[in-house]
Design a protein around this nucleic acid. Structure first.
Lengths: 210, 210, 210, 210
DNA sequence: GATGAATGAGTTTTCATTCAT
DNA sequence: AATGAATGAAAACTCATTCAT
């Protein structure tokens, strides 16, 4: 018989994770000290350690939660979209408007840092790889759908295209996140969309005329 | 009247920088401790501080040196190339064969980390921005050349295209550097080249029909 | 909702300051290392840094506390004294018996070192000057009182006399603190009292006449 | 058969000591690093260690040299003075005009610091005491002369008076050296002279009468 | 469950001294 | 004799984690 309800605990957990995201995003994972999270969350150091075993676990949980939420979101949005092309376009739209959600903006920085951090810790590599594959698979599925429906060129390797898609996204986000020039980012993202889709889609009625 | 020659000192400096690169690349900048560099270089802690004022300065000098070398290299290679298209292709070739030079591979990781690190230190932002602009300008110049010669579509904004070029490069390198799958990287890079050049070049006798 | 009472913290603070005084007095400020204070106080290094931001802050707080206590003490003692002459005599008495309080003895050494230290740190000069002026003003007030009541020669400049008073005190303390010959110190101090008071007081019924 | 003349070596030694005085005076003994002396003297670190075994030895030699010079000076000046009163007045005059010689000003700071430093090093205490006694004896001799000639009160203890003389001097110098207010210092010193001499001299035809 | 004081290993940097040239 | 590069033992300070209350 727990003293507090499960919801209470869940809420507190999330509260900590939100503060952690803010701090990690602003100062970086290594530079963030637990006291930063204490200050931002107004939750005591001891309490934080009641919910998470270590700073690293906070990091890991944070990334997992964000990733899960991203896929939930996508699932929901895509449910109503019928073609691969629409789904891809929706994804591009997502990052075009993303700068409005400061939240996601922060997440990106933290993701990229995690990329660095995780690639150096043997024990995190599998987590990193799993997360990466989840993203890859997500696009692979769309590409395959598109190839079946004839929207997307059959000669392309879905795995390869998916990897390129994420490389494009991450490269652009990398620049944007750290240089912060929103207008340029948006223009670049538009151009990238055009370039990517025209490369990937079948010529018939190619380009943009939705 | 120094006791050792300027070359000796230069060599030692480079020796330290090489060890630093190795350490920074393996463990990350923050996680690398001076003793790691001491151990790797076999140079005493005090001696290292005779050559560099701080760990951060080692980092900065390292990046500067690498960047300078990159541009020197490029300058030299491009001197013999007559068209914008050839220059771009040469750049793609460069990163395609890059994995052979382990050295450059390391530098990339460190560059990306610097991106994160620098974007959070007010005093480093200008260095970061200057470095970024140097890279941007380099491609802008090539694009403009190509537009004048008719190789490259005139309606494209050179700045924007340059940014996209580097986003492609960085995104791909980001994935490769941390996932380390060489074969996939090379294939992706080939595809990216095709995508990019076909987007950028004028259709007449368009880029790749090997 | 602190886990410990304010008194507990105050006590701990004082405990650290006392150890610091002991160490600074024995070895000097610069030569004292934090581990000396750790050893003497039996408080961990980290805990010390929970109470004070730096070694220098310990020094500053220590001096401030001692100075405050000195003036509190004086205020109390002087409350019952009605004439300027009595107040001056009381001050002389204070340092005559001072050697009995080992505590004050230590403080003096540390004060003098602070004089040296502070005079070389731009940012400490104002603290030093403020402290000095507080001492000067204290005697100035007494001198003026005495001049009004007729006890003290009207032609003397209170500021100048006050400065001389403290020069006498500091000079004597300097010698005593470092040579440690108590008997000689006490005799010198008696002589100084006689010299000073006979110079300062109006002849009529002057306290000391040879 | 030495390679260089004794004079050359002596000159170099003095050069180092002069630089050391400057540095010690400006930054303090502990805060001065050998490289400060190297920079100021333009003599290499190795060479400095050829002339002195350690930083401490430089300090000690410096103090010794300065003390010796002081007494040589005094001897010379006093040779032409016939009475104890004149000799004392001459001493007062010396410190009154001293601020003009920046050199001596520096020495004072260093002396005071040495007082602190020396009193904490068992092995330096005897050096300190010897130096102190040399100063004490110097005044004792003058006082005794004055007592014999009738200039100075016979009932005074020469040792005690000598100690007080130096306490006055050191106290005043302490304040001046670190607060640096020249005008105030000079006025105080005048007043101290008046106070001291009127206390010490026989009333008949006393030097200073207000 | 919550609190925040305490811990101490770990980190960067300094600097007196040495010694090969 | 002179040089200055090299050494490495300190020293101040940090911060993830623990644990008594």
């Amino acid at each position: 018989m727990p003293k507090v309800s499960a919801e209470y605990k869940e809420e507190k957990r999330n509260h900590i994770l939100e503060s952690a995201l803010k701090c990690f995003s602003e100062k970086g994972y290594q530079a963030t000290i637990i006291d930063d999270i204490v200050k931002d969350s107004n939750i005591s150091k001891g309490a934080i350690y009641n919910y998470f075993a270590s700073k690293e676990e906070i990091y890991l949980q944070l990334l997992k939660k964000r990733t899960d939420e991203f896929f939930e979101d996508m699932e929901q949005e895509n449910a109503s979209l019928t073609s691969a092309g629409k789904k891809l376009e929706n994804l591009f739209k997502r990052w075009k408007k993303q700068e409005l959600k400061e939240d996601d903006q922060q997440t990106m920085r933290v993701y990229i840092e995690f990329w660095l951090y995780g690639s150096r810790q043997e024990d995190l590599k599998s987590i990193l790889a799993a997360r990466y594959n989840r993203f890859i698979d997500y696009i692979v599925k769309i590409i395959k759908e598109g190839q079946e429906s004839g929207e997307i060129k059959k000669e392309l390797d879905p795995q390869n295209i998916s990897r390129i898609f994420w490389a494009l996204r991450d490269g652009n986000v990398l620049h944007y996140s750290f240089l912060g020039e929103e207008e340029q980012y948006r223009i670049a993202w538009d151009t990238i969309e055009e370039m990517f889709l025209s490369y990937v889609k079948n010529e018939i009625k190619s380009g943009h005329q939705d």
